[in-house]
Every structure is written in structure tokens, then in C-alpha cells.
């Protein structure tokens, strides 16, 4: 029995270090990293500036998944041509980003802004309550339309264009088109955030405000309005993450998606060092790669189902035990 196990593991080890396996794990990891960047980047922006760890972030991703799926189903319909599907997707990007951003702005303005003078714990608690409300509202609406809220809603899967459904040959292995699409979308998003923060005047205000909000105010920056804009941007990004999951067989819209994306987003943001975008990108790649590797091992050799998920939290624990403020962390963030 034991010998068999040893043999199995050495076999698996040998097949892991083949070019095919390594390349496919690499791209799988990058695709997962893109998803992690998408679900975590909005959270990072909000935390970095406002010091608020938004517990409702996952719920907003879930809203984005349902809304995005709905837009795709309505506009694209079943078995579409590629241009229609891709065009519909980018229309959905606009709709989801706009709607969720607006929702986020309203929530910040109406609920969080009145309690900025309290310790950050209260703002975090508020988003926790908000998450309960948003999840339950989603459950009510979804069940009202006869959709099972627990199971993932697969209707949007049929709007996936054929070019993303097939695989592409790349060196020694072939890769699913959807993975490449996710990598591209993740890169675009990171590029967009980077450009916003470093190349625009507003981005400069955001960076100044997240380092020293009081000084920024004394220089004439309306930091509260910057908060609202960043919260809106953060929720918009959360929504886009949900949309991107709509074509992924492994995810799909469901109410539990809120908690399922919130926890990985926390992990990525925390091990990156709260609030730094660079840290979040690096952490996403780290977590994505570990996820891909452990998933491969689970598929090939190890029977423990929870392996990838357990490693997700193990990385969190190990990184924090070694670097108590995450990879790129500074001791104080936000502050207002």
C-alpha cells in the first residue's frame, strides 16, 4: 500500500516536470491569477485609500455575475457568432461597470461616509451588515424568477463564443481559449488601474490621499469625494470580476459566489500587503500559480479534494507568519 503510494507520487512527479504539464500549469496559473487580480483589485484600492476592508465586495462580484449574465443572455442569446458574443461582452462590461459603480458610490455616500469619524472597525462592520443585506436581496430576487440561488446559474455559458470554447496549440501543449481571454482581460485591467493611478491627476490625488489624507486635504484635495470615486471604481471592478466569471464553467453566478470570491480576495489583498496595487498583482500571481499547481496534483495524484482551497489559506498563514505585513506592506495605510 505504502509502496504503491510512493510509486504513484514519483510517477506524478516525473510527469509534472514535463514541458506539456509545466506549460499548461503555467498558463492555468496565469488565468487564475487574472481572476484573482480581478476580484481583489477593487478591494485593494478601497483599502489602500480608506482603510476599509469591504466585506460586501464579494456580494458586489456576485451582483456583477448575475447582471453580466443577464446582459449577455438578453443581448447575445444562445449560440451566437463570435463578433456578436464579443461585442455583447464589451457592452456588458460597460453596463456592469456603470451599474455597480453607481451602486457603490451611493452606498459609500449614504452609509459609510456618515461614520468616517469612527474607528475603522465600524466601517468594516457596516460593510459586513451590507453583505448580509445584499446577499439576501439577491436570493429574494433570484428565487422570485424561479432560479435556484445556491446552484450556479449556467444560462450565460451558452453565450460563450466559439473562439473561446476551443483550444489553441501552444508549443508542447494546447490551451483553452477562455484562459487566454481571462489572461488578456486581467492584463488590461491591471494596465487600466496602473494608468489611472500614475498618469492622471485624480490618480495622483488617490495616491496622496492614501498616504496622508490629512495633508492631502490641507492641500485642497476633497478627499471625501476621492473616497466616493474610489469606492465606486472598486465596486465597478468587483462587478467586472463577476462578469468575467460568467463564461467560466467552474464558477458561474450564484449567491454563495459572494463568499467564495470574498475569501480569496481577502487572501490576495492581505498577502500582497494591504492596499498596494503592486503587492496585489504579485500576490495574485503567487496564489494563482499555487492554485494551478495544487489543482494539477489533485487531479493527478492526491485524493484530498480540498487541496487547492486549503493551500490558498495556508499561503495566507505562511506569508503572514514570515512577513507580518504582507509582501509589500507598510505598517499604516489609509488614515483619515
Amino acid at each position: 500500500m505504502i509502496e504503491q503510494g510512493v510509486l504513484l507520487y514519483t510517477d506524478a512527479l516525473a510527469s509534472f516536470f514535463t514541458p506539456e504539464a509545466l506549460v499548461s500549469v503555467l498558463f492555468d496559473g496565469l488565468a487564475k491569477a487574472s481572476l484573482y487580480v480581478m476580484i481583489a483589485s477593487g478591494l485593494t484600492l478601497v483599502f489602500g485609500l480608506m482603510g476599509v476592508l469591504n466585506f460586501a465586495h464579494g456580494s458586489l462580484t456576485m451582483f456583477g455575475a448575475y447582471l453580466g449574465g443577464l446582459v449577455l443572455v438578453l443581448i447575445v442569446g444562445g449560440s451566437p457568432t463570435d463578433p456578436v458574443a464579443l461585442g455583447g461582452f464589451f457592452l456588458a462590461v460597460v453596463v456592469v461597470f456603470g451599474a455597480l459603480g453607481l451602486l457603490g458610490g451611493v452606498l459609500e455616500w449614504g452609509l459609510i461616509r456618515p461614520i468616517y469619524d469612527r474607528p475603522p472597525l465600524y466601517q468594516i462592520l457596516l460593510t459586513f451588515g451590507l453583505a448580509l443585506i445584499l446577499d439576501e436581496l439577491a436570493r429574494i430576487v433570484v428565487s422570485f424568477y424561479g432560479i435556484q440561488p445556491i446552484a450556479s446559474w449556467q444560462a450565460a455559458l451558452s453565450t460563450k463564443p466559439a473562439i473561446l470554447g476551443r483550444t489553441y496549440d501552444l508549443g508542447p501543449t494546447s490551451l483553452p481559449g477562455l484562459e487566454l481571454f481571462q489572461i488578456g482581460f486581467g492584463l488590461l485591467t491591471v494596465g487600466f488601474i496602473w494608468a489611472f493611478l500614475t498618469q492622471t491627476r485624480y490618480g495622483l490625488y488617490v495616491r496622496a490621499g492614501s498616504q496622508d489624507a490629512e495633508m492631502a486635504r490641507a492641500l485642497g484635495i476633497n478627499v471625501r469625494r476621492v473616497f466616493t470615486v474610489i469606492f465606486a471604481l472598486g465596486t465597478g471592478l468587483a462587478g467586472l470580476a463577476g462578469l468575467l466569471l460568467a463564461w467560466d464553467q467552474a464558477w458561474g453566478a450564484s449567491v454563495p459566489l459572494a463568499a467564495e470570491t470574498l475569501l480569496p480576495a481577502f487572501v490576495v489583498v492581505i498577502i500582497g500587503g494591504l492596499g498596494t496595487v503592486r503587492g496585489t498583482v504579485v500576490a495574485s500571481v503567487l496564489v494563482g500559480m499555487v492554485d494551478a499547481i495544487t489543482t494539477w496534483w489533485f487531479n493527478e495524484a492526491i485524493t484530498f479534494t480540498g487541496l487547492p482551497e486549503m493551500f490558498l489559506f495556508l499561503i495566507l498563514v505562511i506569508v503572514l507568519a514570515l512577513k507580518p505585513q504582507g509582501l509589500y506592506g507598510v505598517s499604516e495605510v489609509g488614515g483619515h
Binding site: I115, G129, I133, D135
Partner: peptide
């Protein structure tokens, strides 16, 4: 949970 959430938010506020 919807109502618990609302009550909770009201408490926090």
C-alpha cells in the same frame, strides 16, 4: 438574514 442585516447596519450607524 435580510432583516438581521438591516438591524445590524442600523445598530452600527
Amino acid at each position: 438574514p435580510l432583516y438581521v442585516g438591516i438591524v445590524f447596519v442600523l445598530f452600527v450607524l
